[in-house]
Simulated assay, not measured.
Amino acid sequence: MSKPTLTHDLRSLFGDVRDQGIRPTCLAFAVSDCHAALRNGWDPLSAEFTFYHAQRRAGLPPTQGALLLRILEAVRDDGQPPETSWPYLPDLPTDLDHWGPPAVQTKYFRNFERGPGSFDEIVSNLLAGSPTVVVLCIGEAFFNPVEEGVIEGFPGEKDVIRHAVVVVGAGNVGNERALLVRNSWGPLWGVNGHAWVTENYISQRLRRIAVLKEEVSVSAHENAA
């Protein structure tokens, strides 16, 4: 296999790859990490806080995966505090009545854009300095990237779940254009928590993309909590 080559790389905006564990919180992690990356210096933001508010907005339990739009609305309207304000919970409390955010002093709010997206649009975002949240339908190959951290789909591979990651780089794998993605499955997945997906893989499995835009003030959102 040809060694991947980078042409654009935004990994310097991010800190260590985080691990969502067994909970269905990939969207909260992807959007939270993009939000933190756009701020000065790396200070992780609370995925737990954003997941909580997204599930409230959608009327969904915390045992179910979030909706992209509701996660984005939570960042824009409810704000997001530093990770230290409400650290991520590896497991939910047995009594879900005890699952709720503490009072926080500092929150950051940011606008967003989302859409069906395309490979070229994602690359354009990278050129503009914007990491991109992508929602993919993934199959078995995604769980075990091969040598050099490349994900190779195979004919007849069945989709298992929808999953969100952050595109942080672009380049080539052999003669094919490819994207470098940051996952939320810890540093042991892929190469230090990152892996390559080719343009062909993306074109078959991409469902939605989102980018975070300008920072907004709390006064602009009457529903902020």
Rank of each mutant, 00 (worst) to 15 (best):
M1P: 07
M1R: 14
K3E: 15
P4V: 03
T5L: 06
T5F: 06
L6R: 05
L6H: 01
L6G: 02
H8C: 01
L10E: 00
R11H: 03
S12P: 00
L13M: 14
L13Y: 13
L13A: 11
D16G: 03
D16L: 08
D16M: 03
R18P: 02
D19C: 02
D19W: 02
G21L: 11
R23D: 08
P24W: 05
T25D: 11
C26D: 12
L27C: 06
F29Q: 04
A30G: 02
V31D: 01
V31G: 01
S32H: 02
D33S: 13
C34V: 09
H35D: 03
A36H: 11
A36T: 11
W42F: 14
W42H: 14
P44T: 03
P44D: 08
T50A: 14
F51N: 11
Y52S: 07
Q55L: 06
R56C: 04
R56S: 01
R56Q: 13
A58W: 10
A58R: 12
T63P: 03
T63C: 06
A66I: 04
L67N: 07
L68Y: 06
L69R: 15
L69D: 12
L69M: 14
I71Q: 08
I71V: 15
L72T: 03
E73P: 01
R76M: 13
D77L: 13
P81N: 09
T84F: 04
S85E: 12
W86E: 09
L89C: 01
L89V: 01
P90L: 02
P90Q: 01
D91N: 10
P93N: 11
D97Q: 15
G100S: 15
P101M: 12
P101L: 13
V104S: 07
T106H: 11
K107S: 12
F109K: 06
R110L: 05
N111S: 15
F112I: 03
E113Y: 05
P116Q: 15
P116F: 15
P116A: 15
V123R: 11
G129V: 09
G129W: 07
G129I: 07
G129R: 08
S130Y: 05
P131A: 09
V134R: 00
V134H: 00
V135I: 14
G139D: 10
F143I: 08
E147R: 13
P155W: 04
E157V: 05
V160E: 13
I161E: 14
A164R: 08
V166A: 08
V168A: 12
G169F: 07
G169S: 10
A170Y: 04
N172S: 14
V173I: 01
G174K: 02
G174C: 05
G174Q: 05
N175Y: 05
R177M: 00
R177I: 00
L179G: 03
L180V: 02
L180Q: 13
N183M: 03
W189P: 10
G190E: 08
G190K: 06
V191G: 01
N192G: 14
G193R: 11
H194A: 10
H194D: 06
W196L: 05
W196D: 07
W196R: 07
V197W: 07
T198H: 07
E199W: 00
E199D: 02
Y201G: 00
Y201K: 00
Y201N: 00
S203C: 08
R205D: 02
R208M: 12
I209T: 15
A210T: 11
K213V: 08
E215Q: 13
S217T: 03
S217C: 00
V218L: 10
A220F: 08
H221T: 06
E222A: 13
N223S: 14
